[in-house]
Simulated assay, not measured.
Amino acid sequence: MLEVRDLHASYGHGDVLHGLNLHIGEGSVTALIGANGAGKSTVMRTISGLMKPTRGAVLHMGQDISGLGAERVVRRGLALVPEGRKVFAPLTVAENLEMGAFQYLIKRDTTRYQAQLAFVLELFPKLKERMDQAAGTLSGGEQQMLAIGRALMSAPKVLLLDEPSMGLAPLIVKQIFEALVALASQNLTVFICEQNSEITLRHADYGYVIESGRLVLSGKAEELVADARVKEAYLGG
């Protein structure tokens, strides 16, 4: 489904990523865990087309999408939920969701838009109660639901999430991850970058560990949870 080969990326002062190789299977929940500054967000930015790799490739369904740019990556079926949510604060919840469906609305495909909207509001009923409310006035958890919902409005095949638990209460984090597992059960591929390693691995099928832009461990999520090195470095063991 999604493959990263020998990925290098830079912000202009030396590489941040150093030859990453990842495989994200169709319909799976795959985790990339690591400390702050390890390179997780750079991985997401590169996959989603916000950055171009300095070397290597990102393959989706066997085709190289490394140089497409963010809009064309979305059209191919990949959607990013960015770190910090980044909702459009002055716009209403309804308007934020419309922004996620731009590729259908510019074609006046209201049928597809309405179908995606119904799907998102069923997944996150709280948003249905807030449709006319400015996004900036929502709670942190509601904003994260909105950010995920906005991404889902593009009807993606792959959902990319950068630190979805950031700043949220544990109960809200649990609800968010349960929603992501439910999405994967409907054959949506989910790839999550997170510092909150324990809850991420407990909801994932497979995991990778990144340190200083290099992969240092990978394996089934249940095996990583039990790994002494992961426990000591990331799970407080």
Rank of each mutant, 00 (worst) to 15 (best):
N36I: 07
F88M: 07
L161P: 00
R229Q: 12
P53N: 10
D132M: 15
L123V: 10
T111R: 11
R72F: 08
D15V: 01
E223W: 10
E142W: 03
R75P: 01
I65P: 03
D205W: 03
K126F: 13
L201G: 05
E223T: 10
F88C: 07
T200W: 04
T111L: 01
H13C: 15
A101I: 02
L91Y: 15
L160M: 10
S165C: 12
K40I: 04
R75Q: 12
P53H: 11
E83V: 09
T54D: 15
A38Y: 05
P170T: 04
G56S: 06
D6T: 03
I33Y: 04
E198I: 02
V209M: 06
V181E: 00
P90A: 07
L188Y: 08
Q186E: 14
G140Y: 01
A226G: 04
T111N: 13
L50C: 07
G49Y: 09
Y113R: 00
N187K: 15
A89P: 09
A35D: 05
V209K: 03
L7P: 05
L59H: 03
I210D: 03
F124V: 05
D64A: 14
Y208G: 00
G100A: 02
E98H: 06
Q144T: 05
Q114L: 10
A151L: 08
T92H: 09
M1H: 14
A115Y: 06
Q114A: 05
R108F: 12
G84P: 06
M145R: 03
A135M: 02
K220E: 15
S185Q: 15
E232S: 14
Q144A: 01
V216W: 11
A118P: 04
A115V: 12
A118V: 10
L91E: 12
Q116I: 08
T30Q: 10
E26D: 11
Y104Q: 01
K126E: 11
I148Q: 09
R229P: 04
G37R: 06
M51K: 15
L91F: 13
G39N: 03
G39E: 00
L224W: 09
G149F: 02
V230S: 01
R76L: 13
N187Q: 14
A155K: 11
R75A: 12
I148M: 09
H203G: 00
L105D: 01
V4G: 06
I176Q: 06
A147V: 07
F119E: 01
G136Q: 01
A94G: 08
L235H: 02
I33W: 02
L50R: 06
S28L: 12
N96S: 13
R130P: 01
V190D: 09
K52D: 02
Y11G: 05
R76W: 07
A70M: 13
A115Q: 14
D109E: 09
G167S: 07
C193F: 11
Q143V: 06
L215H: 09
P125A: 09
S28F: 14
A233R: 12
L171N: 13
L50W: 06
Q103W: 01
V209A: 03
N21L: 14
S48P: 00
H203P: 05
Y104F: 13
L235R: 00
V181Q: 11
H8E: 14
Q63D: 11
Y208R: 04
L224M: 09
L117R: 13
F177P: 08
L59P: 03
Q63V: 14
L91W: 13
K86T: 08
N36C: 04
S212M: 11
F88R: 11
V216M: 06
I47G: 04
E26V: 07
V81Q: 08
G219R: 08
R112S: 08
